[in-house]
Amino acid sequence: MKSLSEIVSSFMGTFNTGDFGAMLEFFSEGSVYIDPYGVEHNGVSAIGDALAPSFEVSDSKSHYQITSTIIDEGQSMALVTWTLVITAPDGTKSAIDGLDILHVQDGKIVLKNAFCKANELTIRKVA
């Protein structure tokens, strides 16, 4: 079985590789995703519906930069801070900062609680 650190790293990597199916495989059937708005999505199907827009092709490119990861093996939990860097077709870059709290049991994510640094999702310009 993979270590918690390997699970978290592989899971977060699916967002950059665009592998939607692989991302969903990390969740247990009874898992819960709490999105940045506080809405709970229960079960793999609902989580897939909620996260699908993150994987849809658009006219911009995006990339998650993992800025820090804290692994708590005893609690089977990871805190992952990230910056989503978005490059528009004209080359303009912007970013959203966030945090995912991931709880894992038996090698599967049972809870993904996502936060962003604003009451509403806001995008800041970056150089």
Rank of each mutant, 00 (worst) to 15 (best):
E25L: 06
I7M: 03
M23R: 04
K125C: 05
E73W: 02
E29C: 03
A46D: 07
S3A: 13
D59L: 05
L51P: 00
E29N: 02
G18F: 12
F26E: 01
L84T: 01
L99H: 00
L111V: 08
F26S: 00
T81Y: 03
D19L: 05
D106G: 07
T87Q: 01
S54D: 10
I7W: 02
I47V: 11
I96P: 01
H41T: 03
T87H: 01
G38L: 08
G74V: 01
E73V: 05
T14N: 06
G91N: 06
S9R: 13
T122L: 09
L111D: 04
I101F: 03
G98K: 01
H41M: 07
N42W: 09
G98D: 00
V32P: 07
D100M: 02
F15S: 06
G91Y: 02
L121H: 09
V110W: 04
N113E: 12
G38V: 06
K2Y: 11
K2V: 03
M1D: 08
T69N: 03
K112E: 03
H103V: 13
V44M: 06
H103Y: 04
K125G: 12
V57Q: 13
D90I: 09
C116W: 10
L99T: 05
G21Y: 03
T92E: 15
V39R: 10
M1V: 07
F115D: 05
S5W: 07
Y33H: 04
A46P: 01
N119C: 08
G48S: 06
K93G: 02
V8N: 01
D35P: 04
E56M: 12
Y64N: 07
V57L: 11
V80W: 01
F27V: 00
E25I: 01
S3K: 04
A52W: 06
A78C: 14
D49M: 15
E25T: 04
N119W: 10
S68C: 13
L111N: 04
P36H: 10
A118C: 09
L79R: 00
P53G: 14
T17R: 01
Y64K: 06
A50I: 07
L24T: 07
Y37W: 08
M23L: 12
S68P: 08
I47H: 00
V110M: 04
K2Q: 14
G48F: 13
V104F: 04
S76W: 02
L51T: 12
A50S: 15
V8T: 08
E56L: 10
L84S: 08
T83Q: 15
K117C: 13
Q65L: 14
A114V: 13
T69I: 14
G74L: 14
D35C: 05
L79S: 06
C116E: 10
S62V: 05
M77T: 14
V126M: 10
S76N: 15
